[in-house]
Amino acid sequence: MTHDDQPPGPQRRVFLQQLCATAAGAVLGTVPFGAGLTVFFDPLRRPAAAGRAVRVASLDALPADGVPRRFPVVEARVDAWNRIPAVPVGAVYLRRRAGNQVEALSAICPHAGCMVNFVPALGRFQCPCHNSVFTTEGRIADPASPAPRGLDALEVSLRADNEIYVNYQRFAAGVAEKIPLA
């Protein structure tokens, strides 16, 4: 009979028991908690829908004086399990320039994401939340504005001479660069 065949000493047995109990406890906790965390982190695995050109307005609806006007962006929206074929998903400011050129600005303030208003009396965009002020072109008008960049310009195209299509996108708030959300 060799030494190895001896029953383990009480110390070693207790240690083994402690080890096994701890390991079992770890498994018992990890399985439900892990399943929960997997589900919790699911949104990180979902990319934002890519921007797509949508018809926003007709050129006729845009005043010729270069004053920006706000239009809703109506698009199909997927909200988790639902799909809504056409629903307002946001708003853009459109402005007509000389020679039927159209400019589109996102109505979302790049500072913290509030929706800006165009104030005709001032000829400026104003954010109702933290008082950022932007020119009609979307540049920061007042250096005291907390916004890190001007209003985000969006790609515009004119189809059939009259239909204004905008590539509606959202960008990261609070940073100086214009980073599309994806």
Binding site: A35, G36, L37, T38, V39, F40, D42, R45, A80, W81
Partner: peptide
């Protein structure tokens, strides 16, 4: 608690949210 984060209690969303969790959420 984790299921709660994905559940929406109404007659038009309860089944739908459970379906989404079960079929379209990783690990659901």
């Amino acid at each position: 608690v984790f299921l709660w984060m994905g559940y929406s209690p109404s007659a038009q969303t309860a089944w739908e949210s459970v379906f989404y969790l079960q079929e379209q959420t990783t690990g659901g």
